[in-house]
């Protein structure tokens, strides 16, 4: 026996392994082949190595080197095979777990805030950030606070039972949130800077633009040195914050008993940016508020010094602002509470 015979056999084992290796397809056959070649008792390579002792001493080194080389190669090859097969089997297992990811997900029901609440919060937040305090008051109100103290003369059409809900001769459902202004001025001396959001009532039949119950927000500022220019600036600032910085505000002279000068407030149409569309009836402007300088008659009712203080007030419909913000053309939707409508709001 010579080392060359031994090395030849080692090479034959190596070639045989290379042939056998190809048929290895899974972990089971991988284990078989490992046993066949490397088993401590009966592995082909192990058996061959037992011949080492039979070799002449001077040939042992060569044989040993080749044997080791073949062993390492087989081991490395088996490791690579093992990793490949393991990866393939893992992929197969994951593939079996695959779901139809195009099916819709499980939905948990999430509730929605009413759009009028969303907008009321938004308006309140703008004014609070500008330094205003939010006030409220009763909805069943006296004619004194709703009319008399706001400079509505006896017999004014707004007092007519065709327009105002009466509870008794002197108690009504408030037709605006202005009574809160009077109640606040009764409580504190200037400076006054408040907004009053709330629910109001007028005897209008339900239609897309009218509702016997709706919501208003009013603003009142009374202090020394408050001017008409302050009114203009405040309205502009608010509308830019609410509708966007591009928004323009316009005041048109008008008349309300509790202000003078009085004005209607228009904003540049939020739908066409003022170029004219169906909503603004081609004018580029949308009427949103009434405004003006506080009528000095009001100060007499609350014992303010009319020569010392001036002020402004304005008010608009929260429902209207909401309709404009979301492009809703029917106020009735707000009070029907159809979940298909409510579900569209965050």
């Amino acid at each position: 026996m010579s080392s060359s015979d031994g090395i030849g056999r080692l090479r034959a084992i190596e070639r045989q392994f290379d042939r056998d290796r190809i048929s290895v397809a899974d972990l089971k056959s991988l284990e078989d082949i490992r046993t066949r070649y490397l088993s401590r008792k009966a592995g082909l390579l192990t058996l061959e190595l037992q011949n080492l002792g039979k070799l002449p001493k001077d040939q042992r080194a060569d044989f040993g080197r080749v044997a080791n080389e073949v062993k390492l190669k087989i081991e490395a090859s088996l490791d690579t095979l093992q990793a490949t097969i393991a990866e393939r089997e893992k992929q197969t297992a994951l593939g079996r777990e695959a779901l139809d990811v195009t099916l819709p997900g499980n939905r948990r029901r999430v509730g929605h805030r009413h759009p009028l609440t969303i907008i009321r919060n938004e308006i309140e937040d703008i004014f609070v950030s500008m330094g205003y305090t939010v006030e409220d008051g009763p909805e069943v109100e006296s004619t004194y606070y709703n009319f008399d103290a706001l400079n509505f003369p006896a017999g004014h059409p707004a007092r007519d039972p065709r327009d105002t809900f009466y509870v008794s001769e002197h108690m009504i459902l408030r037709t605006h949130t202005s009574p809160v202004q009077v109640r606040t001025m009764e409580k504190i001396q200037p400076p006054v800077r408040i907004i009053c959001p709330g629910r109001v009532f007028r005897r209008d039949a339900f239609d897309p633009t009218h509702s016997p119950m709706f919501h208003q927000v009013e603003c009142l500022v009374v202090d020394e040195g408050i001017t008409f220019a302050d009114l203009k600036g405040t309205l502009e600032r608010f509308h830019k914050r609410f509708f966007g910085e591009k928004t323009k505000t316009r005041l048109r002279p008008s008349f309300f008993p509790f202000v003078e000068p009085g004005a209607e407030v228009d904003v540049s149409c939020v739908f066409c940016d003022g170029s004219g569309c169906r909503v603004c009836k081609g004018t580029g402007w949308i009427e949103v508020m009434g405004a003006g300088m506080v009528h000095p008659n009001l100060y007499q009712f609350v014992n303010y010094d009319a020569d010392k203080y001036t002020g402004f007030a304005f008010g608009g419909g929260i429902d209207r602002y909401t309709a404009l913000k979301y492009n809703i053309n029917d106020l009735q939707l707000f009070f029907q509470n159809d979940i298909r409508f409510l579900g569209q709001f965050a």
């Binding site: 309140e124 004014f127 609070v128 950030s129 500008m130 330094g131 205003y132 305090t133 939010v134 400076p191 800077r193 500022v221 202090d223 040195g225 408050i226 001017t227 008409f228 220019a229 302050d230 203009k232 600036g233 405040t234 502009e236 600032r237 316009r250 005041l251 048109r252 002279p253 003078e260 000068p261 009085g262 004005a263």
Partner: peptide
Amino acid sequence: DEIARHHGFDRFPSTLPKWSGFGSH
């Protein structure tokens, strides 16, 4: 009111009231 109307509302500047203090809900 007559002066403001006939002079023109748009001729008046836009300012913000000057005050100190803070707002609250």
